[in-house]
């Protein structure tokens, strides 16, 4: 197994975080959060990958077929569901911020401080 997928996952995560730090728009920030999260998909799928393996699905092949790890795929699927929920909720909040404050720029949203 090569180290490349792990580096790629780290890079995607950091790209998302960088986006959130420098974001000037709450919707953009939520998008960056989704980017950061997609690094977890890359990492999980890379962990379960086997060279020459096929989908872990035994209905039409023999039980000896070489397959990739099904556990991480279940994890990634759960992760997608969790991510979709959180992203939808946060986007809803961002919309509401726009309605109440008239802006989605984090630089202008500093009512809570000190």
């Amino acid at each position: 197994m090569t180290i490349l997928p792990f580096l790629a996952a780290g890079w995607i995560f950091l790209a998302g975080v960088h986006g959130m730090v420098t974001s000037r728009n709450a919707i953009h920030a939520v998008g960056c959060l989704a980017v950061a999260q997609s690094s977890t998909y890359v990492l999980l799928l890379a962990v379960g990958f086997r060279r020459g393996g096929t989908a872990p699905y035994f209905s039409d092949t023999s039980l000896r077929t070489r397959v990739v790890d099904p556990v991480v795929q279940a994890l990634a699927l759960t992760d997608v569901v969790v991510g979709a929920t959180v992203t939808a909720l946060l986007l809803g909040l961002a919309m509401q911020v726009r309605k109440r404050h008239g802006t989605v720029d984090p630089d202008a949203l500093t009512g809570l401080k000190g």
Binding site: L93, A94, Q96, R100
Partner: peptide, 12 residues
């Protein structure tokens, strides 16, 4: 106005 802003930061 304030709760939605606090919740957004909390969530992210």
């Amino acid at each position: 106005p304030r709760p939605v802003q606090g919740a957004l930061i909390f969530g992210i």
